[in-house]
Simulated scan of single mutants.
Amino acid sequence: MKVLHIIPSVAKVRGGPSQAVIEMVTALRSQGVDAEIVTTNDNGKELLDVPLNKQTTQLEEYGNVPIRFFPRFSPNINAVREFAYSGALTTWLWQHITEYNIIHVHAIFSYTSTVAMAIARIKNIPYINRPLGQLCEWSLQQSQLRKQIYLNVIERSNLLHSQSLHFTAEQEKEEFHQLGLNIPNFVLPHGVHIPTIIPNAQEQLHKILQIPDHIPIILFMSRIHPKKGLEYLIPALGKLKTADFALAIAGSGEPDYVNHIQDLLAEHQISDRTYWVGFVQGETKNLYLQGVDLFALTSHSENFGIAAIEALASGTPVLVTDGVAIAPMVKKQDLGYVTKLEIEAITSTIQRFLASAQVAKQKGDRAQQYIAEHYSWAKIADSLMNIYTKYAKL
């Protein structure tokens, strides 16, 4: 079976969805599925330095999976640039899409995904769509008028002709149903790699950051973006004037917004206990996920929350807001703390965490076992293969 995954970008600046599609294709290929990726050289305001207009399997940064990059139209107009228009990608899809049994499209409201679904319809190739949370209430409220027009005039027909929609959490599916669109769908979470245990990870991390061993470390690891709720987490921590804690921020974002967050840290007087570690990956990322005491994602909306799942797989309890789609699972399995996206509520939840380190550790220990049992990539890939078999044109 030949499966083509199409996504506007696999750049790290685009966060979890880009990482997920590479890991998904890797897992599928390990089980014998001939899966590959088509995308653009989008990298936010910049462009990726990658081979264009041809398939490559030699890029370690992208998992060494078969991937084709096409040039993105890059005018100095943010809305047009973000749309990820690519004439070369369009031409290639028109010429080659019939070579595949099924198309797995990731994202909506982007030229790349929209044109892929349209061409698949014309060529009578079945496709499924993973909306990446863009049909959730919070996302639809951003640039609301433009998205409503786009959805009603263009994307609605694409979605209605899809074989199915791929949601990664029940909460994402429930929010979609509010739109009243009668489209088949399924819920299948992202997988996660269960990391190798790093001996004395907490001791190592405290030493690297030069933080006394008795001070718990709270980790924010994600894109530094307004969606992620740092404007709530920072004031919440600022209220804990007498508490011992350190905040580690791992990620990158637009310079203007990063400056805003730095100003916010100063305003709430926690700059001196905040550690900026930048974008981390590989063993360094594993060390942070295993070496901290609490992972915090106080986001407005997440259709999944990949970094939070990775933290749980590392044995670290999480603090998530109810807009993060895995929040019901975290609460039901008691793998961390779930709170409202309110400063006072977040402060109160962190106080509970700080008051009982042993309870937090027990949550983390449960999390590691639960994630290993339910979120392995092998398990997810096996489920995807069954779905493809159901819908593919063979």
Rank of each mutant, 00 (worst) to 15 (best):
L160Y: 14
R273P: 03
Q19R: 15
K12N: 14
N158S: 02
D213E: 14
A118F: 03
L28Q: 05
G251N: 05
A118C: 10
A308G: 11
P75E: 02
G180H: 07
T284D: 11
G364M: 01
N200R: 06
V187A: 10
T339W: 02
G238Y: 09
H5S: 14
N182R: 03
I211M: 00
T321W: 00
W94Y: 15
I125V: 15
V318W: 11
R146V: 14
E342V: 03
V153C: 09
C136D: 14
S110F: 08
P255M: 08
G305E: 04
P226T: 10
G63I: 01
T316I: 04
V13G: 07
L233Y: 02
Q358G: 08
V330T: 08
E231Q: 04
L294G: 01
L287Q: 00
S18N: 06
T242I: 09
Y370S: 07
I208V: 13
N182M: 12
Q144F: 12
H161E: 08
E46I: 04
H96V: 10
N286C: 07
W138C: 07
G291I: 08
L394Y: 00
A327D: 06
D322W: 08
Y370C: 10
S164M: 03
S164I: 08
R352V: 15
N76S: 14
S348I: 10
S271I: 05
Y370F: 13
L354V: 10
L264K: 03
Y257P: 12
F295T: 11
L52K: 05
Y375D: 06
L297P: 03
D365L: 15
Q134L: 14
A327T: 04
A88L: 13
A311S: 09
K285H: 01
A313K: 00
I125N: 09
A360G: 00
K173A: 13
H300C: 02
H193M: 03
R72E: 09
I22F: 02
M385P: 02
E172Y: 04
K393S: 06
G180M: 06
M329G: 09
P199I: 00
V65P: 05
L294M: 01
V292G: 06
E175M: 04
A236L: 04
I194V: 09
P75R: 03
D272Y: 10
T339S: 12
I102G: 05
H5R: 13
E61W: 09
S157F: 11
I215V: 09
Q31H: 10
K239D: 01
H5F: 14
A307Q: 12
L237A: 08
F176S: 13
E23M: 06
N64Q: 05
A243Q: 05
A392K: 15
L319A: 11
E342S: 05
N152S: 10
A201N: 06
L59G: 04
H260G: 13
K228V: 08
A116G: 02
V38D: 11
R68K: 06
H166A: 06
P71F: 00
Q269L: 13
P235R: 05
K241T: 15
H374N: 13
I261Q: 00
N303T: 00
N259V: 07
Q358F: 02
L159V: 01
R14W: 07
Y337D: 02
I154K: 04
H5C: 13
Q368W: 09
I217V: 12
D34E: 15
Y375G: 01
R223N: 09
D322S: 10
S376H: 05
K340I: 12
T90E: 15
I102H: 07
